[in-house]
Amino acid sequence: MLRIIEADITTQAADAIVNAANETLLGGGGVDGAIHRAAGPELLRACRSLAEVRPGVRCPTGEARITPGFALPANHVIHTVGPVWEGGDQGEAELLAACYRKCIGLAREHGLHSLAFPAISCGVFGYPPDSAARIALHELSDSSAQDMEITVCVYGERILASYRKAAPSLTSRQR
Rank of each mutant, 00 (worst) to 15 (best):
A98W: 12
Y127Q: 11
G82E: 08
L43E: 00
G88Q: 14
G91W: 14
Y155L: 07
F117P: 02
K102V: 04
I66E: 12
G29R: 06
K102M: 12
E6V: 07
Y127K: 10
I35G: 11
E23T: 04
A145H: 03
R158E: 13
V154D: 11
Q12R: 00
G87A: 07
I4R: 12
T61D: 04
D147M: 01
V84G: 10
R164T: 14
S144E: 06
G123W: 03
I150R: 10
P55L: 04
I104G: 03
A64Q: 06
G56T: 07
I135M: 05
E6N: 10
A167G: 04
F125W: 03
A93H: 14
R58P: 01
P129Q: 01
E86I: 15
L2V: 10
L72N: 03
L170D: 05
I5E: 15
L95R: 15
P55T: 03
A51W: 08
P168N: 08
A98L: 13
L140F: 08
A98R: 15
Y155R: 09
Y163A: 07
D130T: 15
F117G: 04
L95G: 14
S169M: 12
A116V: 14
A93V: 07
A71C: 13
R37T: 02
P168Y: 06
P73S: 01
V81W: 11
C103P: 00
I120G: 06
L160T: 01
K165E: 02
A51E: 12
I159C: 05
G111Q: 14
L160W: 05
G29S: 08
D147A: 03
A39N: 09
G111Y: 09
A145P: 05
E92R: 03
D142W: 02
R45L: 00
L137F: 03
M148V: 15
A161G: 13
A93E: 13
E157V: 12
E94R: 15
L96Y: 11
G27S: 10
A16E: 14
D147K: 06
E86M: 15
E149G: 11
T80C: 08
D142E: 03
C103M: 02
L96W: 12
L137E: 01
A14P: 08
E63S: 01
A16H: 15
R108N: 09
V124D: 07
P73N: 00
W85S: 02
L115W: 02
V81M: 07
V124M: 03
L25P: 07
G56I: 08
E139V: 04
C122M: 14
D89V: 13
V152C: 00
E94L: 12
G87W: 09
N75P: 06
L140C: 03
L160R: 03
A107Y: 11
R158M: 09
A145Q: 02
P55K: 02
S141G: 15
D8S: 10
D32N: 00
G29V: 04
S141D: 14
S172I: 06
L115Y: 03
G69H: 03
G88M: 07
V57R: 00
F117C: 01
